[in-house]
Computed example of a mutant assay.
Amino acid sequence: MTDDVILGIAIDCTDPRLLARFWMTALPYVEASPPAGWASWEDFLTAWDVPESEWNDGAAIEPENGSGPTISFLKVPEPKQTKNRVHLDVKVSGGRHVDPQTRESRIRAKQAELLAAGAVNLTEHRAGDHLDHFVMADPEGNEFCIA
């Protein structure tokens, strides 16, 4: 095994910038830095003669603190058609050891923020009398959980 293997997550979509903005709201992520040697993505794309009409063919975000995988959004021609086999979890509750009312308050606060950003509720899951997590969809229908 080598030390140069890095995890990155790629999400197919029809509007990379839209989804990048949404996921920067959902997670503590920022727009990914341009390649080394370039002041901006626009400078990089211009230098490589990428037509401006193709500048939304991809977008990338990275953790604010530098810890964690980058997430890339890649434009594809077909819309999402079936349930995700892999999904992202937005973990905000603090874990199951946290008081159920505190967990629920944290989960519902993030849910409200993401609904305002374009997410859709799919299902609510309870553990007995307490909220456990929500399954939601991002603006392009990709499922994720808030727990």
Rank of each mutant, 00 (worst) to 15 (best):
L115C: 10
A127W: 04
E52L: 03
L27Y: 01
V76N: 09
H133N: 11
V76M: 01
E113V: 13
I71R: 05
A137F: 09
V30Q: 05
L18Q: 15
G128R: 06
V30K: 12
R126K: 14
E104F: 04
S72I: 05
A109M: 05
I146Q: 01
D89F: 00
Y29D: 01
D15E: 06
K83A: 08
R85M: 02
T123Y: 06
S53Y: 05
L18Y: 04
H125L: 03
R106E: 06
M1H: 10
V5A: 01
L122P: 00
A36H: 00
P139F: 08
H87D: 11
P100C: 05
G68R: 05
A117V: 12
M24D: 01
A137V: 14
E64T: 07
H125M: 05
P139L: 02
T25K: 15
N65E: 02
C13L: 10
I146H: 10
E54H: 12
H133K: 14
S67N: 13
L45Q: 05
L19P: 05
M24P: 09
K110Q: 15
L122N: 08
P139E: 00
F44T: 02
V92I: 12
D43L: 02
S53K: 10
K91H: 04
D3V: 09
N121M: 14
D89Q: 10
P51E: 02
A147G: 08
P34L: 06
L18D: 05
N142A: 11
E52I: 09
P51Q: 12
D12F: 12
A116T: 07
E124L: 07
V86G: 11
D43I: 03
L74E: 08
T25W: 06
D49A: 11
E140I: 11
P28K: 05
E113Q: 14
E124V: 14
N142K: 01
R106L: 13
A20Q: 04
V98T: 11
G95A: 07
A10M: 14
S33E: 13
A36G: 00
D4F: 13
W48P: 03
K75S: 00
G66H: 07
L7Q: 14
L131N: 02
L122V: 09
K80M: 15
H130Q: 15
E113C: 04
K75I: 04
E78G: 02
K75D: 03
P77L: 03
P34Q: 01
W38M: 02
V5P: 05
N84W: 04
L115I: 11
F44S: 09
Q101D: 13
E62H: 03
A127L: 09
L19W: 09
E52W: 12
T2V: 15
C13K: 13
L27M: 06
E78S: 00
K75N: 05
I6K: 15
E42A: 07
